[in-house]
Amino acid sequence: MEETNHPLPAAEERDRWAESAVMDLGGPMFHAALLLALRETVAADHVSHVFYGHDGAVQYSSAASLLNQSLIEWTTNVFVDDEFYRRDPNYGLLLDMAGRPDHHPDPVIQAASPDRILDSEYRRLLFERPGFASKISLIGARGEGISYLNLYFSRTHSPDVTELMRGRAPLLIALARRHHQLCRREGEAQRAASWRSGLSLREIQVAELLRQGHTAKEVGRELGLSPATVVTYKNRLFKKNNVASLKEFLIKTPVASGCTPANAS
């Protein structure tokens, strides 16, 4: 099978490819920009990023392709939704890294090709059917979880490409993780803002103080309202957000940090 073989770039050129991806961090075109930059140097055709929690379960996934976007999305969905990720040859390593991130300070690079996959169903669905000739996996462990970045090739990549990616792995993983963080924060901000729809200014003021952990008496003192009036506003908030208790309300309307106040009972 034909190999991709690209010369190693000069030291001063090694990080220029990342500039366009950095510009798209947190945006819908990030993975496509990252893949396009990589395509120019290592001829990767598809990329997927899967993020694992400490329990080994997938928390996030995204993918991009220069050849067939629907194909890489289908493949990624099979990998995640049908739990083929648990049959991944790298899954044992991922679990170990998730459980002991401090023991894996450096990124791990793994190369794979169909002939090295013993699970026939996994090989058929995730290599042969989509036409992947080889794959390079970049795995990075941090306190919040594991980033699993996969580059797929339509032609078998050469050992030189693997070595090139070894040098770029720290930056690639850092970019993918940062993108994930920005997307997660944006999602949290959108969820946090949605509960304000249909509320009056005073109801929002009461809600904000409640979300910060203040009692009804403290809210009343801050806004110049009687405790009974604060309770009235609180009941309106519960009704409009379809919740029955302060704890439910705080869970449904997280503070900006994503943390629930300690006295949410």
Rank of each mutant, 00 (worst) to 15 (best):
Ser61Leu: 07
Pro9Asp: 05
Val78Lys: 06
Ser194Met: 11
Arg87Ala: 12
Gly99Val: 02
Lys234Pro: 01
Ala141Tyr: 08
Lys217Glu: 12
Val22Asp: 01
Leu95Arg: 15
Gln190Ala: 11
Ala10Thr: 08
Leu93Met: 14
Gly56Lys: 09
Pro7Asp: 10
Arg86Leu: 12
Ala10Leu: 15
Met23Pro: 00
Phe153Lys: 03
Ala228Thr: 11
Glu12Ala: 12
Ile146Met: 05
Leu209Gln: 13
Gln110Thr: 08
Leu172Tyr: 04
Ala21Thr: 06
Thr253Leu: 01
Ala10Met: 12
Phe132Val: 09
Gln181His: 09
Thr76Ile: 04
Leu201His: 11
Asn242Pro: 00
Leu223Gln: 02
Gly99Phe: 05
Pro107Phe: 06
Gly56Glu: 10
Lys247Cys: 02
Asn150Asp: 12
Trp17Gly: 00
Val47Glu: 02
Ala174Ile: 00
Met97Tyr: 07
Gln205Leu: 10
Leu237Trp: 09
Arg87Lys: 15
Asn150Thr: 08
Met97Cys: 04
Ser257Met: 06
Ala256Tyr: 13
Arg155Trp: 09
Ala111Arg: 14
Leu182Lys: 06
Val58Phe: 07
Thr253Met: 03
Val42Met: 05
Glu208Arg: 14
Tyr91His: 14
Arg129Asp: 08
Leu182Gly: 01
Phe127Thr: 02
Asp15Trp: 15
Leu225Gln: 07
Ala98Asn: 09
Val231Leu: 15
Gly140Ser: 14
Glu83Cys: 07
Gln110Ser: 08
Leu246Arg: 13
His54Ile: 01
Leu171Met: 13
Lys252Tyr: 06
Ser158Cys: 10
Arg185Thr: 03
Arg86Met: 09
Arg100His: 15
Glu222Arg: 15
Pro254Phe: 08
Gln69Lys: 12
Ser137Lys: 10
Thr75Ser: 13
Thr162Pro: 02
His49Arg: 03
Val161Met: 12
Asn5Met: 10
Gly56Asn: 09
Leu126Asp: 03
Phe127Cys: 03
Lys252Ile: 00
Ala141Arg: 05
Asn68Tyr: 08
Arg86Pro: 03
Leu38His: 04
Phe30Ser: 03
Val47His: 04
Thr232Ser: 12
Ala207His: 02
Val255Lys: 09
Ser120Ile: 10
Tyr60Ser: 05
Asn77Ala: 14
Gly131Arg: 07
Gly220Arg: 08
Leu182Ile: 14
Arg168Trp: 14
Val78Ile: 13
Val47Lys: 02
Phe127Ile: 04
Asp160Asn: 10
Gln205Pro: 01
Arg155Ser: 11
Phe132Ser: 00
Pro261His: 07
Gly99Met: 10
Ile173Arg: 02
Ala112Trp: 11
Lys239Val: 03
Thr156Trp: 05
Val206Met: 06
Phe238Trp: 14
